[in-house]
Design a protein around this nucleic acid. Structure first.
Lengths: 238, 238
DNA sequence: CAGTGGTCTAGACCACGAA
DNA sequence: TCGTGGTCTAGACCACTGT
């Protein structure tokens, strides 16, 4: 149908894509300046920038203002494993910032606490080498987060003791474009989708122990859920 | 930081967004032509189109080539419920096309069958009123899909009888931009992310009974997974 | 400072949709 | 056919990065 959609930027993008995939342009390498490329392809700069925007949207090229366009290094994929109540990827370094705040916005409903009740937030940015790989905000009722807890792992370990055990983990996933903050933190273009994950953990008393808002870059992350069915599946009557 | 990013298209987009949210521009209504809007805001057409592209990316505006820009109707959200082995949304009408083909590409690995083995594909596009809401390709080994089965539900019902019961459902989710086919079928812009879901159902003999590739539009769909934990959670020694 | 990308202009021409 | 959006040009000027 609309298959002959061969605008100039697509032709140029195809050519650059080929040069990248054949190793003619190597990972990390800087591309010629946009002006040079525009001359080479005999197009105007907006057209050439359109071609680069396509590649940027595919995660093949990273633009750095004032510096140039760079071929992105191939990225290790990460898989978020659902249902376990643990954060994205164990073997990654993470930068954690702890903040005390009061429940506002969606948080009271998420955590099932009154508005303005005290919470502790852990802002975690996990790294894989130099590249950021995920960003998470973890919220915990403050009384469950003893002072001195600087990471959710510490917290979980400390809570494992005399607290009622967890009973349910609910995870909601969506796809959207990143906020400006997210695209900066994850070093992705504003047009790269992110997998947005909201995880709520409830203990057997029905109390919400933790809510996590996790953002994973769409070009190198996915989420995996495995459900084992018991031998009682007769008619799944909704 | 880069908070003073007030380019013209952002100013224009903000103004149009406000007009939409205040009802000054009503849902379904056609916006003035791009030329008129460009004159009104005293910008060039590429700049105005940049503003519309922002709104389009947010799902507020739908462009129809040759016809105009329209305010999108507010959309009913749909939630895919994971772990149940059923397709997106029961109360929606679906258009189904059945095709016979041979396993190729990723399908042999997904279904754990030899390449070129016969499969049946169900292409399901579910509708909510006039708006498409999801798109799914469901693959079944052909010997499990008796002729006359024209829908996965029929199929499931027919298989419920003497077949070994299901034992595991694995669901992998990612966020990405739609293919051209998907953006057309789902009537979303090419820059609107989709939630991509791959579901594989295995029976207790280890045989893959069904693989489904499901695409949900990011602006009106999410996926929900609920995990009930048994009382054996000691130390998650991962 | 020089070089880079970011934004914008004021047109032009083409492709599509509806009457 | 005519009005719509889609693409493109050949510049201009601003903002950022690195030396």
């Amino acid at each position: 149908m609309t298959r002959i959609m061969t605008s100039r930027r697509h032709v140029i993008a195809d050519d650059l894509r080929r040069q990248i995939s054949t190793g003619h342009l190597k990972a990390g390498e800087r591309l010629p300046s946009e002006a040079q490329l525009a001359t080479r392809y005999t197009v105007s700069t907006p057209t050439l920038r359109g071609a680069l925007a396509l590649l940027q949207g595919e995660g093949l090229v990273e633009k750095i203002h004032g510096s140039g366009n760079y071929v992105r290094r191939p990225l290790r994929r990460i898989t978020y494993v659902g249902g376990s109540g643990t954060s994205p990827a164990p073997p990654l370094r993470a930068t954690i910032r702890t903040t005390h705040l009061e429940a506002h916005g969606d948080l009271p409903a998420l955590l099932n606490v009154p508005p303005l009740s005290p919470l502790t937030e852990f802002l975690c940015v996990s790294q894989d080498g130099k590249a950021p790989h995920s960003m998470a905000r973890i919220y915990v009722p403050r009384e469950l987060a003893p002072a001195g807890c600087t990471s959710p792992e510490q917290l979980r370990a400390r809570l494992a003791g005399d607290r009622p055990p967890l009973s349910e983990i609910q995870e909601r996933l969506g796809a959207r474009l990143p906020t400006q903050e997210e695209s900066t933190a994850l070093r992705i273009s504003a047009s790269m989708p992110v997998l947005s994950l909201t995880r709520v953990a409830t203990d057997i008393t029905g109390r919400v122990v933790e809510a996590a808002l996790i953002v994973l870059p769409g070009d190198r992350a996915d989420a995996l859920f495995t459900t084992r069915l018991m031998a009682n599946e007769g008619t799944p009557t909704e």
